[in-house]
Design a protein around this nucleic acid. Sequence first.
DNA 1: CTGAGGGCTTGATAAACATCAAGAGGACGA
DNA 2: TCGTCCTCTTGATGTTTATCAAGCCCTCAG
Lengths: 232, 232
Amino acid sequence: MRTTDLEVVRGLRLFCSMSEQAFDDLVQAAYVQNFPAQLDLIHEGEPADFLYVVLEGSVELYTNWNGRSATMGMVSPVTTFILAAVLKDAICLMSARTCERCKLLLIPSANVRAAFHRDEAFSHAIIIELADCYRTVVKEHKNLKLRSGVERLANKLLHYHTVQGGNGRVVLPYDKKLLASMLAMTPENLSRAFNTLRPYGVEVNGAEITFTDLKGLETLAKPNRLIDDRQV
Amino acid sequence: MRTTDLEVVRGLRLFCSMSEQAFDDLVQAAYVQNFPAQLDLIHEGEPADFLYVVLEGSVELYTNWNGRSATMGMVSPVTTFILAAVLKDAICLMSARTCERCKLLLIPSANVRAAFHRDEAFSHAIIIELADCYRTVVKEHKNLKLRSGVERLANKLLHYHTVQGGNGRVVLPYDKKLLASMLAMTPENLSRAFNTLRPYGVEVNGAEITFTDLKGLETLAKPNRLIDDRQV
DNA sequence: CTGAGGGCTTGATAAACATCAAGAGGACGA
DNA sequence: TCGTCCTCTTGATGTTTATCAAGCCCTCAG
């Protein structure tokens, strides 16, 4: 494992407060590995053997039932995933696959569990991390239950706008098929949703979106910190 | 606080492993209080002042946005709620109201946070509890993303059937308006969904449901442990 | 260059779901 | 007892979303 990777991981809120010793033990047992695009990392229903940390690239969490499929979330650097299943030593509820070429850190889940039993600071950091994971899903759930497809798209665009600097221009981070799945709609309907937003000053050019009437878009989207703000 | 209440709370997975001292401190600071039906306990957006434990009655977690409303979950005895907000000292993402007359235990959230910093066993129990909360919402989310209204109803009925003894008969625990909201559908559509299930041997008589073709119902519902099983 | 394939869009159609309106039946208080 | 309110159901209608089919455009390998 490269020193720079190690420092980045060490800097994560989940790991930064744990003891030197405990962190070293964890990292000693871990592997850094590169994966090609579109590779299945986890199948739902299987045990959680590793805690994953995305160092480079992005990972899609998804789920299947009765022939249908749904994207549950995207993981980008530098973030962990399937923490809850690892801690409970339980079966994974979601599948995971790489979107692009990825560099991942794999920490054996038994070591993670051992670490939080040994290091109190780590177990406190886990509590905050899990509480955040929980609240993120709750927000996702609210987003889905309370909003139509067009509204979800409008708010997602405003979110990207904020993240990307707020200068009236946005580049979609994923292709539209994936974006559609994230927004719980079909690619066809995403296309139509963009058309619906045109009167609100949303101009689409491939992956580039420009906004000419942010006020109007916000009036439609009605962003809400209890749904859209990451840190709340 | 009555001794029997105290023992029940002490028996909860969240509290049973913590030290006598820490539990006593927590309980000393707490109040038991009775609330009438349909009383608002928490408004989303407000700080989480207490960790709540439902001792009697049931509580609805719900949320609002732009004039719309959605039920997020039901809490029945003996269970805690808004644990994540309490631990993070954050704003509540959901509102809560009593459905019927309720007896609740209110533990000041500052005391909960102090307790997990002092008692290691408690912080480990919190980790397991939070991981479970997280996985429960993930399952809810999958249920909503992957299934139609009729499918959600069919699976909910099968779930009640299992919980209530599996003898081909079920009594709905809530009125149909609330059940509809839990299933993310309107009361009108719940009524129609019951009609859709009649050919699958589902007979409705007020709150009493009887099943005459469980195999058939299961073929339609396709229950899945990664969505429907509570303990997975 | 050429053809194949994928991403994206559009139109037509169908299914799922919501809304509006009306009415049956039961609970409850005056 | 009567009227009122509430829950639940049903029908008619409209909206939202999905599905199916077709076509455009771009990329890329041969």
